[in-house]
């Protein structure tokens, strides 16, 4: 959330600014360590702490954090198995990394003064592009030209196909956009809303005579925060479920 807002000028998008902590450039590509990189690192470390450190004892009777790790594992494993089938389990580590990283990044982003990694379209688009590249590459590798059956639904008469195939192609091509924008827009909008309401609190407190109304947007923030917690988990889930669905298409293109 926005850190230091001047009382006169609350700025709800200041929280998305990228600050170069260590400016760096390699081969003409800027690789500065930014606040975004810092929080990517924190999210990844959070996942590693949960999944690697907490399970190091490998107890038969798990402790609290270990059972959390196991729950996460089984949750994602069931999701992959149910959506992409047994064969989809070879992508389980990928889907798990994706889900846990996005989930932890979303949740960390909800802590005040932190940075939301997934509120950047470039990050979500990179994930979506990775998923869709994986789908296309694996689909072609596994099915060869049969992968194109993805665009020809089974058992549809020829005249309908003439209309349907272009629609299928367009829907396939729009997948990376819908996938990335969904996550990005949800997180971005949520954070902006929270910051705007926070700004209202500040403005009301600073105003003459209306400061008694300041608790109203504050209560709204509390309610919105609960909603944002839900959105943070839900969007991570939606992103990974759709990943599984697309991977299922790569595995069984003929429907």
């Amino acid at each position: 959330m926005s850190a230091e807002e001047t009382v006169s000028q609350p700025n709800p998008i200041e929280q998305f600014e990228l600050h170069r902590i260590f400016p760096l450039e390699i081969n003409g590509i800027e690789t500065s360590f930014t606040n975004a990189s810092l929080f990517m690192l924190l999210a990844a470390l959070g996942v590693v702490a949960l999944m690697v450190l907490a399970t190091s004892r490998q107890a038969i009777v798990p402790g609290r954090i270990q059972s959390l790790a196991e729950m996460l594992y089984e949750f994602v494993a069931n999701m992959v198995r149910q959506t992409a089938g047994k064969e989809g389990m070879k992508f389980f580590p990928f889907v798990f990394s994706l889900f846990s990283f996005i989930l932890i990044a979303n949740l960390i982003g909800l802590v005040p003064y932190t940075y939301s990694v997934t509120s950047q379209i470039v990050v979500t688009f990179a994930f979506a592009a990775l998923v869709l590249t994986l789908v296309v590459v694996y689909g072609v590798y596994r099915n060869g030209l049969g992968f194109l059956k993805l665009f020809v639904p089974h058992g549809v008469p020829l005249p309908v196909l003439v209309v349907l195939v272009p629609i299928e192609i367009i829907s396939f091509l729009s997948r990376p956009i819908s996938l990335s924008v969904r996550l990005f827009a949800n997180i971005l909008a949520g954070h902006i809303t929270l910051a705007v309401f926070g700004g209202f609190v500040v403005l009301l407190l600073a105003s003459n005579g209306w400061s008694f109304l300041a608790p109203v947007p504050l209560l709204a923030i509390v309610a919105l925060y609960a909603l944002e917690l839900l959105v943070a988990c839900l969007q991570a889930f939606v992103f990974s479920v759709l990943t599984c669905v697309y991977l299922n298409d790569a595995i069984h293109p003929g429907h």
Partner: peptide, 20 residues
Amino acid sequence: NFAPQIVWLIGIFGILYLLM
């Protein structure tokens, strides 16, 4: 802002994927 984020994302997510 795109390049530094993508570079670090690839690095960090790659390591995370390997660890996982």
